[in-house]
Amino acid sequence: MNGGPRLFSILRQGPYLIASIHTALDDSQLVRFQQDLVERIGSDRARGVVIDVAALDVLDSFASRTLRDIGEMARLRGAVTVIVGIQPDVAFAMVELGMDTGRVVTALDLEEGLAELDTYAAAPPAPRR
């Protein structure tokens, strides 16, 4: 099964990775995305990750959990994760669903997300020392 090439892309931009999801993913594709991304953080020695989820039609409990897990795994691998592109309707549904979105950093769009990563790189937050 080659779910990789078109469903999502992970591109390198300086010390950061930009991961874009291109279409609605099902659960196993999300897991595959998570594995690929965490691997790339190591192989590319990335310091930050921007995940663009604008193309996801819904962020249900599994998708939210997966994104939260990615953020946590990336943190353990020494990278900061910023989620960008959550659509207003999707945000509304997530709140209604009662999702605990945890400590994942979010930004409005890709530009804001990269700016956010830059501030982290300039002054790493306390927990990461």
């Binding site: 039609d57 962020l59 659509q87 309707d89 509304f92 549904a93 209604e96």
Partner: peptide, 8 residues
Amino acid sequence: TDVTLIAT
């Protein structure tokens, strides 16, 4: 918004 709620 409702469509997204329903889909979720």
